[in-house]
């Protein structure tokens, strides 16, 4: 799936060099102030707002011809939007593509952090629909910016308090808010809360791009990230209480698949590369085909 050259009708990685420089400045500012949402002049991309235009612009600003790009959506390389974005960069940047987390230098993702631990030098780019963790508590951008500036986060905890009062637990399952380096409260994009522990102390650079909302933010390597909680209701990164039915993994995030109209279901790794790598290494799950098929 490697394309050696990029389409000569477009500048490398689609955006013009001025725009890429502008985005890089925003990225550097974001890295310098972890968790702070940097406004940037998001460009109109040839894909719809809300479909990863922020992530695509950040990736475009980071890519060099030697890069090896992996694109995932819901943890999988073969979901349609991941395919579409990967093809966009193969055409406009001519970079090599890969499905292997370990081989990728830049990974663009929607809704997941790969199971395989990232390493120094890798860049993980998140697509972000709503960058503002306070948005559904306070719809006004002018007011939420003031709240961040003054670290006025009481309201965020009121939301968690209300959850516990009503449901007996913090009822946020994804886009679970985090506090970065004891300062900014940040939306980690709609990853399941299961992935939250991977945000902190991560050797890779993590960049977050929100195109429609015109914001970029970042976590430099080894940043302290804490999921918001209460002492007596600690953060709980739960997942389905199953093992993967294909590779037997017990510690990976699982998709639930309905297999017939009788309510039968199976659970499989959401991270397709992780699952395949394990199966290739001989791991087996409950519904694995017999050995002959391996």
């Amino acid at each position: 799936m490697n394309a050696p050259h990029h389409d000569p009708d477009y500048n490398f990685a689609y955006l013009d060099e001025q725009t890429k420089r502008m985005i890089r400045r925003a990225i550097l500012k974001g890295i310098a102030v972890p968790g702070y949402q940097v406004p940037f002049a998001s460009r109109e991309m040839p894909m719809p707002y809300g479909w990863g235009t922020g992530g695509v612009q950040v990736t475009a600003a980071c890519l060099v011809p030697e890069d090896r790009l992996k694109v995932i959506d819901q943890g999988a390389d073969d979901t349609t939007n991941a395919v579409s974005i990967r093809r966009f960069f193969q055409r406009t940047a001519g970079v090599a593509a890969t499905e292997k987390t370990t081989e990728a230098s830049v990974i663009q993702t929607r809704h997941r952090i790969p199971e395989t631990p990232l390493t120094e030098g890798q860049i993980l780019v998140y697509q972000v629909p709503i960058p503002e963790p306070l948005r559904f508590l306070e719809p006004r951008e002018s007011e939420t910016r003031r709240m961040h500036a003054l670290a006025d986060y009481g309201l965020m905890h009121v939301k968690l308090y209300e959850d516990i009062a009503r449901h007996g637990a913090i009822a946020t399952a994804y886009a679970y808010p985090v506090e970065v380096e004891g300062r900014y409260v940040m939306d980690p994009s709609p990853i399941p809360k299961f992935d939250n522990p991977k945000l902190g102390d991560n050797p890779a650079i993590q960049l977050f791009g929100a195109g429609r909302e015109q914001r970029i933010y970042a976590l430099p390597p080894y940043t302290a990230v804490r999921s918001l909680d209460f002492e007596d209701y600690p953060f709980d990164p739960s997942k389905a209480d199953h093992d993967c039915d294909l590779c037997g993994a017990s510690g990976s995030y699982l998709d639930e698949v309905i297999t017939d109209d009788q309510g039968s279901r199976m659970f499989v790794c959401s991270d397709t590369d992780y699952c395949e790598t394990r199966r290739d290494a001989g791991h087996r799950g409950r519904f694995s085909p017999p050995e002959v098929q391996a």
């Binding site: 235009t53 819901q74 939007n81 929607r110 809704h111 990853i191 399941p192 998709d255 639930e256 959401s270």
Partner: peptide, 17 residues
Amino acid sequence: TGFLEHIKLPHYVDFQS
């Protein structure tokens, strides 16, 4: 329209959570 229509993209990871 982009944001409105993006809800037809897969969200099964979040839904699973």
